[in-house]
Amino acid sequence: MTNWSPTVFTRVMLGVAVLLSAFPLYWMLVIASRTNADAVAVPPPFLPGGNLGENIVAVLNNEDAKFLLGLTNSFVVASIVTVSVVIISTLAGFSFANLAFKGKNVLLLLVLLTMAVPLQQMGVVPLYRLMVSMEWTGTLKAVILPYLLNGFGVFLMTQYTRQAVPMELVEAARVDGAATLRIWWNVVLPAVRPGMAVLGINTFMLMWNDFMWPLIVLTPDNPTVQIAITSLNARFSTNYTLIFAGTALSIIPLIAVFVVFGRQIVGGLMEGAVKA
């Protein structure tokens, strides 16, 4: 098994990869903990300074930054979309994978086709006009609704359910007299949980980082966190410590979640990637 032990080169490469992954985040902290003059100094500062707390308080106290609102909004948007996409996809995936019905192949093909269409980019014009005519611009509804549709989710859950739920299990439950929804709840759901986790993480990340559509449809009064950083950047373009303290704040919640659930996230991602 000598094949599986790493060479020196491999170790070095991994070390570099880890350093590079962490460096921009380290840099964010360096600037966020210094002064504006340091941020534009040459040579640049390489070590963190002592103003982190002060700068973070400044962001949180800055009414125009709308930072907490941005974080809350992003959390609300990402959670609602994630929960609904996971439920909708799991239901449809079960139907496609384990149930027989007429027109199934055509419908599944349709799902596959929609996967290739970047709807939120392609449909910006009519979606925007729709939101305007419904007077929904500036509201979170406008950000959430177009993303409830996720062809990738249905496809992923169909594939996953196929692998994870043997037909025999479904049929046995049927013989026991269980209705379809009950089979979904009792047989399918427990088996496809890892797939749901992967889809959930993916969807959450996608929504958290969504930028183009919120930039069009939201206003800086009611931003998601990405829009909050963008308007912070536009409004206080030379106040680097404020901007960097803001960006640091915006990713701390995500990193905290990641550190706590790291094992599950890495495991889930890997399992999902193989089974789908």
């Binding site: 609102l69 809350t72 609602i80 439920i87 500036g138 509201t139 509804k141 609704l145 709840w185 206003t219």
Partner: peptide, 25 residues
């Protein structure tokens, strides 16, 4: 389980439909 699933689905829709709650000033 069924009850829970139904409740969850209903809650999702309810939250989604009032997602504009924290609208602009």
């Amino acid at each position: 389980g069924m009850a829970a699933a139904t409740a969850l689905a209903a809650a999702t829709l309810a939250v989604a439909s009032c997602g504009s709650g924290s609208g602009s000033s």
